[in-house]
Write a protein that binds this DNA or RNA. Sequence first.
DNA 1: ATATTAGGTAGGGAGTTTCCTACCTGTCAA
DNA 2: TTGACAGGTAGGAAACTCCCTACCTAATAT
Lengths: 105, 105
Amino acid sequence: MNPDLNDDVFAALASPVRRALLTLLLDGPRTVNELAAHFDMRRPSVSEHLKVLRDAELVSERRVGRERHYSLEAGPLMELQEWLHPYERFWRERMAGLRDVLEDM
Amino acid sequence: MNPDLNDDVFAALASPVRRALLTLLLDGPRTVNELAAHFDMRRPSVSEHLKVLRDAELVSERRVGRERHYSLEAGPLMELQEWLHPYERFWRERMAGLRDVLEDM
DNA sequence: ATATTAGGTAGGGAGTTTCCTACCTGTCAA
DNA sequence: TTGACAGGTAGGAAACTCCCTACCTAATAT
């Protein structure tokens, strides 16, 4: 049903550091050093986090001279949204329940 | 911004077993034994997965005699959908790009 | 009362994750 | 051409995950 939404994506999103990296990339492509500056962590560790994101195809890299520019790739996140669809009914029901309670007050 | 969407939710979703448990609960509340029957795994392990889901508030439990009925709680998934919002722009852009390529063919 | 059933908890082993330092290659600048 | 800089890779320690078996309590059934 969602053939391309695999474990790797969920595993990649499980780390707060990697989620923060994705958030930083919302503002456009960034080099590894620019990204690393935001973390209390050595650069090689950031490199490894980027590798996990690359393997999950959540980011892409473009080589520019001796720099590497990382960009957000939102495809897997779109599939994640699709994965959520079957659950949507449940939170709508809960919201409806909440609304009813509020109306009774 | 999403104060209630914490690490626990992403970590809970990182396991394929736990995602399968949520999928099973789409059909309504289930006991631990009913859930465990779907996995090639001992029951205590399923219990532990359920504990992780409970801690992330993705499921709730109701005691009925000696059984425990687990139910889906979609609140955190709704927050996950909200977490995705800032990324939506990116996949829309990608889709638009794809459409343009197709139109040129 | 006793046996059985539902299901949680404890402790442990194997595998994985996450960080580190040390080191390497490739590019640019002097 | 030599030095400095960007950033990836290797190897290893500490912590965490995931599964197991053994065991426990509470509730039902006999």
